[in-house]
């Protein structure tokens, strides 16, 4: 009995100590970022162009570039992912050889390292398709990367739509296309939105896949074929390649983390609302 109690104490101690230590380190990270970066985040910082290789000035063009890359990524991955998710969740084909192969390959895709996506993007989009270092190439590369996340969440959304809707629509002689568009898609929309937001989070955080697909240029992009610099690349470049770039790198990191927190918070809030809605009688 006393040996058991001693072991209990030891395990409890280990758990508490490790959790406290880890929490402390994370608060240290977030705290030090905020402490040294927060003061520099002003409206002017967010809107003006970087000067002196980024040591001075703001991140205006970089914010715009980030949003453009994100826009291309979502514009491509959303319809593709939606189509794939509908096929996998709504049609009997999900169990077929084709369906299983697609699912398996998406699982592998989810684990592919981002630098490999970068290599692939530069070979396919920049070179084979002749897009060069551009917002398009970066966005397309990210689109490949977020597809598995998007598809998984959307499938979840369609699964949660009650099967009564499908039977009712079929019994009324409606085509599956109309049933999907008018009834199931609205019912699955929360899942789709959660996937969208998670995918956006992943795309925002990404750096390695963009290094040699969208490039480094920190000017305001004039078209989607221009090279452009994302927030994450800006942080990397300032801290590694520009001496004296740390303060602005830190401020940029604060902006990026704030954006991600907003995006993740949105996802959590939407999932919560969605779950609470599902509890109500259908």
């Amino acid at each position: 009995m006393s040996r058991g109690r001693a072991a209990d104490r030891l395990l409890a101690l280990a758990v508490w100590v490790s959790v406290l230590a880890v929490a402390a380190v994370f608060f240290w990270i977030l705290g030090s970022l905020l402490w040294s970066g927060m003061g520099r985040v002003t409206w002017a910082f967010l809107t003006t162009a970087p000067r002196d290789a980024g040591r001075a000035g703001g991140i205006g063009p970089i914010l715009v570039s980030t949003l453009l890359i994100l826009g291309v990524c979502m514009a491509v991955s959303l319809p593709l992912g939606l189509g794939a998710a509908v096929l996998l969740s709504e049609f009997a084909e999900a169990g077929s050889l084709f369906g299983r192969a697609v699912r398996r390959s998406l699982d592998v895709l989810a684990g592919v390292p981002s630098i490999v996506f970068g290599l692939f993007g530069t070979a396919l989009f920049c070179q084979a398709l002749g897009l060069g270092y551009s917002i398009f190439a970066g966005g397309l590369t990210l689109a490949c990367m977020v597809l598995p996340i998007l598809i998984r969440a959307t499938e979840e959304g369609f699964r949660s739509a009650p099967s009564e809707y499908r039977r009712a629509a079929a019994a009324l002689g409606m085509s599956r296309a109309s049933a999907l568009w008018h009834v199931l898609l609205p019912a699955a929309a929360p899942g789709l939105l959660v996937g969208l937001v998670l995918g956006m989070g992943r795309a925002l955080a990404e750096t390695a896949a963009l290094l040699f697909t969208s490039g480094y240029v920190d000017r305001m992009p004039e078209s989607l074929l221009d090279s452009a610099r994302a927030l994450s690349i800006h942080i990397y470049d300032l801290s590694m390649n520009v001496t004296g770039g740390d303060p602005n790198a830190c401020a940029t990191a604060v902006v990026l983390v704030a954006l991600l927190l907003a995006v993740n918070g949105l996802a959590a809030w939407m999932t919560g609302r969605w779950l609470s809605r599902r509890v109500l009688p259908a």
């Binding site: 009834v183 609205p186 259908a282």
Partner: peptide
Amino acid sequence: FALRKRIGMLFQRPNPFPLSIRRNLEL
């Protein structure tokens, strides 16, 4: 589609679509 238009069905549990009353009938 024609068959199911000519032979309707009513289920054990009411299953209106998650739409407005009017849309349920119009769809």
